[in-house]
Design a binder for these strands. Structure first.
Lengths: 337, 337
DNA sequence: TTGTAAGCGTTATCAT
DNA sequence: ATGATAACGCTTACAA
């Protein structure tokens, strides 16, 4: 079923069918109707490859997600869902590339096979070879997250420094004097994962401002690691009365650790951090946290990308979001004594 | 950067470059090396659209997921992750189509634009127009889930009837005499969502076998609905001592409902059901449940699809999985009195 | 208002 | 062992 078939059945030339579909040239009502009838009957739809070849664009964008082996956090899932939704609204398809490293074949295909008109990159490191490759390939792209050199690319990101700082101030206001930061995994932070570093910076700065002490810990991205981390923390630093975290995946484990130690939240211990919005509300108890509007971020990333695809020479735009801390049930005044 | 450019720089014809890459014709070592050097230097990679147009296949598969607006369950996420991973292993790209209904443009494009070589369909209804459309389009596809007519398509699915039945028997063995089934949402079940219906069937059958009573409830797919559902259940049916559920997303809310009613799990109340494996382990308390091996299912679905793409005339294969109930901490003997 | 034809980048069938 | 060339299905500049 191709355009030639439609054309001959409708008794017109192929170009007339093409123009009838695109509207780029006027077609008489009679022929248009004849063509449309044939199309409806046969269920014709232009071949995407032929169109892409001719037009030089694919109407597809690439979404580069962390490798499938690593489970996505709720926040990352929110990004994926909203990017996909935004793409659908713009009649674009989304090609998923689960690639972390540099030698990933799926990423290579994205890069230089002309498969996509642009890409959205997630989980960016401070130094990220994928960013350089995308720049080299002259493929328009937008980061959800950014590298150390903020102005080398277009991105939208959460201001982890500010947001963790807000968490610390909130805890300090409640009287907490010893606070722990539970960061993402050692590997990720060591690999230069931006949010991990910025969270630590914000943590340190806020502690200094308030003149209080804190300890920062890395923690694997799952519940088991969270449990282990909380247990160790309570054992080695019994003076700590509150945790701020950017590690969503560890939270269930952290809570279990507190529970096993006989600590009730928020009576004996406070927890806060930065997590995806819907998740904060579903947590038990509902989590006092900076709610990251994953939905907005995905949508805005898509807008930025569409802008770059339309005009690759526009200056890079950078959007930094610092959602305020929403008060819910997981933080409370430090326990006397 | 196209094959012609490479050819002229290497001083050979385009066909020689093509053959050097594909290996479908012997090329002298000298020229192959010359060509490879140019390719390495310029970072050439065949244009996907041109290749797809010529070869009649795209090396891409479509993954039809529930609309992005609805949040995916952990189990569904497991499917997506493992399908994407399996595709990457086979050097295939994955196009994501968030479409539930029939008139979804993204689904239309998948269907008849020649964008994909095959598709994997999730969240299938007993009567599902998408299945008919795919059949009509002669596009190879595999379902994770299946319609009422099992033999009209190729699929892999969880045997919800058996698995819920196992849960009921387990609870009955523990002495529970009044058990509730918490199903997926009213809308989904009313729309003919297979797992919802089969779970209910298995529930009813097992109750009959054990000569005990149960009530079945629909519940929205989120924590808020779970809370509401549990609250209502405890109010209207205080004799109920255990829940079996296929509604992962409602579980946190259900637990909160029990907590608010002062019921401890598993001392006062038992919970079990069918959920994704990793999630069962992270639950508090760890969930006694039939652990769905989402990883395997995605991988097997991919294998089935590759088989169908390779030979669309192979008879449909149907795989039904009934993972056994794994004992963890959320079920216990019914409380005396 | 409509038709003709070139060309997008590949692969594969002829030749040589 | 390699080169010339047609064809895949589409869009669009040019003709009529």
């Amino acid at each position: 079923m191709n355009i030639g078939e439609i054309a001959s059945r409708a008794g017109v030339s192929r170009s007339t069918v093409s123009y009838a579909l695109s509207g780029k040239r006027s077609v008489s009502d009679a022929t248009r109707k004849r063509i449309q009838d044939v199309i409806d009957e046969l269920g014709y739809r232009p071949n995407a490859a032929a169109r892409a070849l001719k037009e030089g664009r694919t109407r597809t964008i690439g979404l580069v997600i962390p490798p499938a082996s690593r489970r996505l956090t709720h926040m990352q899932l929110g990004f994926v869902a909203s990017v996909v939704e935004a793409a659908a609204r713009a009649d674009l398809d989304v090609l998923l590339s689960p690639s972390g490293g540099d030698h990933d074949r799926s990423f290579e295909r994205l890069l230089s096979g002309g498969r996509v008109d642009g890409a959205i990159l997630m989980e960016i490191r401070l130094e990220d070879s994928r960013v350089r490759r995308l720049q080299g390939a002259k493929l328009p792209f937008v980061g959800i997250g950014h590298t150390a050199r903020a102005h080398e690319m277009c991105w939208i990101d959460v201001d982890y420094a500010t947001v963790i700082s807000q968490c610390v101030h909130h805890l300090a206001d409640l009287g907490h004097q010893r606070i722990a930061l539970v960061n993402r995994s050692v590997e990720l932070v060591a690999a230069g994962y931006g949010p991990g570093h910025r969270a630590r910076d914000g943590f340190t700065a806020a502690l200094a401002q308030r003149g209080i002490q804190g300890i920062d810990l890395e923690c694997g991205d799952d519940a088991a690691a969270g449990l282990e981390c909380a247990t160790r923390l309570l054992r080695d630093h019994p003076e700590v009365t509150a945790i701020a975290t950017i590690n969503e995946a560890a939270l269930p484990g952290i809570q279990r650790g507190l529970e096993e130690a006989g600590l009730a939240v928020p009576r004996d211990f406070s927890i806060t951090g930065v997590v995806g919005r819907t998740w904060a509300e579903e947590f038990r108890p509902p989590l006092t946290a900076a709610d990251v509007p994953a939905q907005d971020i995905g949508t805005q990333a898509m807008d930025l990308l569409l802008e770059r695809i339309a005009d690759p020479t526009t200056p890079f735009r950078n959007i930094l979001l610092a959602p305020p801390v929403s008060l819910r049930g997981s933080t409370g005044p430090v326990r006397a004594g």
